[in-house]
Design a protein around this nucleic acid. Structure first.
Lengths: 216, 216
DNA sequence: TTGGTTCTTGACTGGATGGTCAAACTTGAT
DNA sequence: ATCAAGTTTGACCATCCAGTCAAGAACCAA
């Protein structure tokens, strides 16, 4: 009577589900980092597993030991991104001073463009393709949050604490301006010259722009 | 002694160079239109000739009868785009009234986002990938034009006809805001709901924004 | 109608690409 | 040191994809 092995993964080739080993953690992170680099510049279909493997310094079968498929890597990246993508807007505080709150929101978004340009480009690529993989996220989570904050902005305008301004376009304008510095960094860099940080002077300009717009 | 044929193209399979037949003109246009649709949503590497052929309602070999390669189609699209991409900024007139000139420039860019969203996304895709195919255009033509107009804006600011404002970031902000309505139309559409034109209300908002910024 | 030219396409090729697999190597608990 | 589990990879496969080719269909001037 053969003793059933207690061991092993449920499916062959599937890494253990529970707590991951040091190696698991390290290599998953290396792969995600490499994949972010490649997906964010070439888009999903334009990226290849060989490119990602080369970037990660691992073999292609090794990649597929840690992730089930190219799609799984991409899905993982997007999921992690969306988790934090909404935070800056969530922090817009109804109890705060309207102009200061909006300025702080703009500054948080600008920081994300500075610190996570690859994530920004990954997101931009997804939207350019019509957002096929994050449609539900946008229609549900993002839309609800924007509606809620737009309501808050409208209230602020109505009570005279903020200039009368279209709240949706105000939010869109912050997205447009801050993301531009990440997504179009290549263009800005080529125009401003090599020795120039693309974001130099961006914050003062945006402060000037929104200070003038928002004063009641 | 065989009489040399005067006829035929220089290379077999190469369409005639000179004046194109009706069919040539029509099919080239159909192909470019289909390719614009596909390239602008999937990027160069993410697009396939089969997709373009299906979109155009032609067979793949037929595509390659009119264009030498996938690359040639893409290059043709970019070339046509760049030809007109700079016009709105070129029209910024040193003789005009500063605020009105900038407003008119913003309006021209917004019109392009409305009328040519696919071209805008084609350009965005190219920049996201690091602008490999249009680097020379950006470093030379675009950079020179921007430097020249930034100089003009700086002069306007110095002589008090315009608020003191960073001229480069002023131009970038117009690019960012207007392109956003084309490139992120999918996102805006999902947030604002189905029955909504993404560009509704954009122009009044942008006028308000720049009116407040630019007043001396 | 005729005959040369232009246009169209089914069938194909070579190389890239996502993914599989079994064998080999490494690690770490005992 | 031992060995079972976890990790790595060379070789391989099926499919996709850009591009070719030769033969046939449509066009048009005489």
């Amino acid at each position: 009577m053969p003793v059933p092995k207690k061991s092993a993964a449920e499916k062959p080739g599937t890494p253990p589900r529970g707590p991951r080993s040091r190696i698991q953690k390290r290599n998953r992170q290396i792969i995600l980092d490499a994949a972010l680099e490649v997906f964010s510049t070439h888009g999903f279909r334009g990226a290849t597993l060989d490119q990602i493997a080369a970037e990660a310094g691992l073999s292609k079968p090794n990649l597929l030991y840690y992730f089930d498929s190219k799609d799984a890597i991409h899905r993982d990246l997007l999921t992690r991104l969306l988790d934090t993508w909404l935070d800056p807007l969530r922090m817009l505080d109804a109890q705060g001073e309207p102009q200061a709150e909006i300025m702080a929101y703009m500054r948080r978004k600008l920081e994300m463009a500075r610190d996570f340009p690859r994530e920004s480009r990954l997101f931009a690529n997804e939207i350019l393709q019509g957002a096929p993989r994050i449609e539900q996220f946008i229609r549900n989570d993002l839309r609800q949050l924007v509606d809620e904050k737009a309501q808050l902005l409208a209230d602020w305008s109505r009570t005279g604490r903020l200039a009368p301004v279209d709240p949706y376009h105000l939010i869109f304008s912050i997205w447009a301006l801050t993301q531009h510095y990440a997504d179009f960094a290549a263009q800005i860099g080529m125009i401003r010259g090599a020795g120039h940080d693309p974001l130099d002077g961006a914050e003062p300009f945006l402060e000037q722009l929104y200070t003038r717009l928002l004063a009641p």
